[in-house]
Amino acid sequence: MSIDPAGRTARSPIGPAYETSRRTSMRTFLHTVDGVTIDSVYNPGTAVYDASAPPADDLVFVVAHGFTGDVDRPHVRRVADALARHGAVVTFSFRGHGASGGRSTVGDREVLDLAAAVGWARELGHARVATVGFSMGGSVVLRHAALHQGVDAVVSVSSPARWYYRGTAPMRRLHWLVTRPAGRLVGRYGFRTRIHHREWAPVPLSPVEAVPRIAPAPLLIVHGDRDGYFPLDHPRMLAAAAGEHGELWLEHGMGHAEHAAPDDLLRRIGDWTVSRAG
């Protein structure tokens, strides 16, 4: 894989000429620019491509899971299976999660993990890359698109708009998990998530600050009106920052992230991405 020091991906010599029909499912460990191994899975998808169509019709979804998820979790596999009906899918475990190396920085250096996954998708010959993130992953896809660019569409589901939010009981529990030694032990042994003990220095660009930098790539912001982690002022702030290049879906009765995303919503996300990416 070829990634420059800024995290941008470069096409491999395989390029879009690599035939879709020759791609097969595979699993590998990618390497980020800061030396972390990232457990990653590629599924060529079940979508049918027209062999006479130009390479721009070749779409891959790169899925960024939420905090304490990983590539083998059933809710992550369900998302991947749903999106595979619309194109190929790359899933991966963020640092500190599952079989990936390193320790979680809860959305900061995870941008480099996503950059590695996007680079792999490009190397496999996909002309269009869409990133789809949930919760922590939702904030990561926003920051990745702002800082590295080079993706064709961005979907952020259940993302916070700003850092250090403690306005709900679930977020107060999450802050205890991340900031306290006892909490990090619970994270390691209870949730299979290894969390870095260091505080952010410097504090990374916030999601709401990142959003205006994503244009011209189309952006979809999705949030449930029963999200127990982040109330509706978060998606509304993100949508306001996006302006005309963003779209907001407030989903009635939906809770938080992958667990709460119904199959119909995943289908609509797939349809939206196919129509907007490229």
Rank of each mutant, 00 (worst) to 15 (best):
G101L: 06
A6N: 09
D72E: 11
R11A: 10
L124E: 05
A17K: 07
T179K: 13
V111C: 06
L185N: 11
R226V: 11
L142D: 01
V274M: 09
G243Q: 12
Y18T: 15
G69S: 05
A260E: 06
V208Y: 03
A169T: 12
T24K: 13
M1G: 02
L174F: 14
L30A: 02
A88P: 15
D108L: 10
V63A: 02
G45Q: 06
R184V: 03
L250W: 08
D233V: 07
R198M: 12
A127K: 15
R172N: 02
V111P: 00
A130C: 15
H126F: 15
G15C: 03
S12W: 12
A64D: 03
R73P: 00
V90D: 02
T20M: 06
H144T: 14
T131G: 09
G187H: 07
R109C: 07
M254S: 04
I214R: 05
A260C: 06
L142A: 07
T273A: 09
A64N: 04
A130Q: 12
R172E: 07
R78D: 04
G101W: 08
E110A: 05
A84C: 11
V118T: 06
T91I: 03
E258C: 11
G138M: 13
P160T: 09
P202R: 01
H97E: 01
T91D: 00
S104V: 03
G101E: 08
I14Q: 12
E19W: 15
A53H: 07
R11P: 03
V141E: 07
G190I: 03
H196I: 10
A116Y: 13
L147F: 11
P235D: 09
A6E: 07
H175Y: 14
W120T: 05
G96Q: 12
S52Y: 06
D58N: 09
V111G: 01
G253V: 09
Y49A: 04
R85D: 14
F134N: 05
S2I: 15
A117I: 03
A257N: 10
G87D: 10
R128I: 06
L232D: 10
S52E: 12
R27E: 00
D50P: 06
H256Y: 15
H223L: 10
H223N: 08
M254W: 15
V151F: 04
Y49T: 04
A99F: 01
M254F: 11
P54S: 12
P5D: 09
P181R: 12
A277D: 02
R109W: 14
